[in-house]
Design a protein around this nucleic acid. Structure first.
Lengths: 237, 237
DNA sequence: AAGCCAATGTAAAGATTGTGTAAAGGTTGA
DNA sequence: TCAACCTTTACACAATCTTTACATTGGCTT
């Protein structure tokens, strides 16, 4: 999603000016904005700019070579780095990756592959960022679970559940539309075998039902006598 | 941070059982946990498990090949994927990356390089997730942190916190609106595992609460019984 | 259809666990 | 040594889980 808000800004650190121009044109045609630095020192300075989304870093350079730039940036640097190199040496690749590079491409490279790798890195960052903030929310049949806050809402209205109730509802929703036995609920959620006169699961389900029904006219939990419970998927049936 | 809470879990989808064993041993020695699936179908099913941190996906496989698994997972799948292939074909690499793979390694590969690539991907995800929150928090819900002077104010009035209290509040604010477990607070701030009768975190949180409440009528820290604490973002909820 | 019984619903009581916090005990650094 | 701070202890209390008890239901037999 962030990827389409504005052109992604790529910083190329490479002393080959001819290549820079070619690349700039190609990446522009793919919707990227390219800035160039022709030696390690100036590249290092620009690498800390907040609006740089990705760095293409050549290894062979005057003043400061690629590995030295990597070291200077540190492995926790927040902008991803794709290394470019004339040699395809494995030891170099490993060293680069260990120093904090995200990927490694040997020259001469195909533009399409470079583009694919750039996109792969940016896509992964985008997914990782969102997975954190929107911390996995799932909605089925008007019931929404928010794992980040361990909260539940039914028809857009919050419902207060206890920890165990939340886990049971979660498990039932994971298997929505299919029967979930009390045995598996007990083992998964309560962590113990279901014994003859243990009515805990029944009580928890009863409580969940009551709480959900305060926000919805229809029961979302169906009892299958002698078999277990089903969280109804909605629609037909 | 997340990286040290528990061993990272890697899923290998490959029909070569011998390789699987070798890899399992090697990765275990590096602190990873490896699960294996020997065909695409079962691998695909396991790929959706929440506790998988990274997938190693072989291209040549019975039932469903690597590309088909990729397609089935979709390019927005939240677990990163490293493709393994016998051929080093460039067209294959590009196709894999475009379909949603994060990286590509040709067999036979060096274990050290595989490890470096795995770590590079996981490191990048970790940084991306944290960059969201870690960067300049300053003010949330009328509570302001001033990193330069390590001072805190609540509703424009200074609050005196000890070092540990400051760190705990900082961590909670970094994850505002989300549950933060006592375990991760203990590990991150106190630098030790939370043990059965350790009440330090409770005490620190209690003290932070009291100090903040002297400047504000409403409690900014919510307790989620059995789960942890949330620094409330303000507004609704 | 009537009657029986096991399975289920659920209110209420009882047991257990997690949390808040005062106060005491330790630790550290000036 | 003292002061500031962190940790442990202790106890109260509230939230939650489990058990008990009884009502209700649905399927089965006769």
């Amino acid at each position: 999603m962030t990827s389409f808000e504005q052109p992604q800004h790529i910083l190329l650190i490479d002393d080959d000016q001819e290549l820079a121009e070619l690349l700039s044109e190609y990446l522009a045609s793919e919707g990227f904005k390219l800035s160039c630095c022709f030696d390690g020192t100036s590249g290092l300075a620009k690498a800390f700019d907040d609006d740089i989304d990705l760095i293409l870093l050549d290894v062979m350079m005057p003043k400061l070579n690629g590995f030295e730039v990597l070291k200077a940036l540190g492995s926790q640097h927040k902008t991803p780095i794709l290394m470019l190199t004339a040699k395809g040496d494995e030891a170099d690749r490993v060293l680069g990756l260990e120093l904090g590079a995200d990927d490694y491409l040997a020259k001469p490279y195909n533009h399409r592959e470079l583009l694919a790798r750039i996109k792969a890195i940016l896509r992964r960052i985008d997914i990782a960022k969102n997975s954190n903030t929107h911390s996995s929310i799932e909605t089925i049949n008007n019931v929404t679970l928010n794992h980040g806050t361990r909260t539940v809402s039914c028809h857009q209205q919050e419902v207060i559940l206890t920890g165990t109730e939340y886990q049971i509802l979660h498990y039932l929703m994971q298997h929505h539309g299919q029967i979930v036995s009390k045995e598996s609920l007990s083992e998964t959620v309560l962590g113990r075998r279901l014994t003859s006169f243990d009515r805990s699961i029944d009580m928890h389900v009863s409580n969940i039902r009551r709480k959900l029904l305060s926000n919805s006219p229809i029961d979302k939990l169906k009892t299958v006598r002698g078999a277990g419970y089903i969280f109804l998927s909605g629609e037909t049936q």
